[in-house]
Amino acid sequence: MEWFTLEQIDQQTVAISEYGHWEKVRSFLLIGQKEALLIDTGLGIGSIKEVVDRLTDLPVRVVLTHVHWDHIGGVGEFDNCYVHPLDREWLEQGIPVWDTASVRKELMRELSQPLPAEFDISRFELFQGRPTGHLLDGMVIDLGERKVRVIHTPGHSPGHVSFIDDNGYLFPGDCLYSSETPVYSNYPSTSPQDLVMTLEKLGNQPDVRRIFGSHNQLEIQVSSQELLASVNYLRVNDLVRHGTGLHNFKAFSLLF
């Protein structure tokens, strides 16, 4: 069985999902005329580069929504990597709390399909290294006949970013995904205040047609009005702080 599940959003956009692991993490390949963009690199269990190489012959630029272990697993397979400056230290010096030994344990629990034959957990190392460059709020990446804009969306991590392309596809990473699991903003390196401002920012983005999550089900069915209503509810009820617990909304949930 193939470790990755490929889901074709359109002819130039592919979701690369890892449903065999409890995280159900997902990366995205956006293909332009002169370059392709890989949003996140998954767990590092299977070779995401082999998948990408089958899908495109174009040069591939790797961009990270944020530097958490389940999104940077395949970074070492590529010769470039871009990250927001506020997450750069984690990429270079390590993620708070998470080291290679603890990540190895997470990789091996709650598996629902066989691991690739070539994967050896004893050889897995959590990536650390310098990024090629930075992702800044408002930056536009031109892939050739397709432009992708970077949006700084902190909360889940200080340097978390989302991406929106000129098809109106929004890729919000871990600041918004379907409610099978909550969006986590309950540990010290997270900020409920920043996350709520991020949801407001996303709710005010013009021309969003479809939203694709980095965990759980592929497409998130949530409107701008619903996002803004959730922000208002949390603020009015003084819930935007650590320790207020789980907050359920129609399409998503948040844990503070």
Rank of each mutant, 00 (worst) to 15 (best):
residue 24 K to D: 12
residue 22 W to R: 15
residue 23 E to C: 14
residue 102 S to Y: 04
residue 140 V to M: 15
residue 199 L to P: 02
residue 225 Q to G: 08
residue 209 R to L: 10
residue 232 N to Q: 15
residue 247 H to F: 02
residue 59 P to M: 07
residue 71 H to P: 08
residue 103 V to Q: 05
residue 48 I to W: 03
residue 61 R to D: 02
residue 86 L to A: 11
residue 67 V to M: 04
residue 107 L to K: 00
residue 234 L to E: 10
residue 147 K to M: 10
residue 128 Q to I: 11
residue 76 G to C: 07
residue 193 Q to W: 13
residue 252 F to P: 02
residue 183 V to G: 00
residue 203 G to Q: 05
residue 30 L to K: 12
residue 18 E to F: 13
residue 220 I to Y: 02
residue 43 L to N: 03
residue 213 G to H: 02
residue 76 G to W: 04
residue 50 E to A: 08
residue 181 T to C: 04
residue 172 P to I: 08
residue 13 T to I: 15
residue 84 H to E: 07
residue 112 S to E: 06
residue 159 G to E: 11
residue 88 R to G: 00
residue 232 N to L: 15
residue 197 M to S: 06
residue 191 S to M: 05
residue 230 S to H: 01
residue 81 C to A: 03
residue 22 W to D: 14
residue 95 I to Q: 01
residue 3 W to G: 00
residue 210 R to S: 11
residue 130 R to P: 04
residue 90 W to R: 03
residue 173 G to V: 12
residue 2 E to A: 09
residue 143 L to E: 05
residue 15 A to E: 08
residue 22 W to T: 15
residue 157 S to D: 13
residue 138 G to C: 06
residue 151 I to W: 04
residue 104 R to H: 03
residue 116 P to C: 03
residue 5 T to K: 10
residue 202 L to W: 01
residue 168 G to S: 09
residue 198 T to H: 01
residue 157 S to I: 11
residue 94 G to T: 06
residue 15 A to T: 11
residue 226 E to C: 01
residue 126 L to E: 13
residue 106 E to A: 07
residue 194 D to T: 02
residue 178 S to H: 12
residue 16 I to D: 14
residue 167 N to V: 13
residue 4 F to R: 10
residue 44 G to E: 04
residue 251 A to D: 02
residue 94 G to M: 11
residue 69 W to P: 00
residue 127 F to S: 12
residue 167 N to W: 12
residue 99 D to T: 08
residue 216 N to Y: 08
residue 40 D to R: 08
residue 149 R to F: 11
residue 168 G to D: 09
residue 211 I to L: 05
residue 190 T to P: 01
residue 241 R to S: 04
residue 235 R to T: 06
residue 151 I to T: 12
residue 48 I to V: 09
residue 97 V to W: 06
residue 21 H to I: 15
residue 48 I to G: 02
residue 86 L to Y: 09
residue 192 P to A: 12
residue 56 T to H: 04
residue 138 G to F: 11
residue 58 L to G: 04
residue 217 Q to T: 13
residue 46 G to N: 06
residue 90 W to E: 01
residue 54 R to G: 12
residue 216 N to E: 14
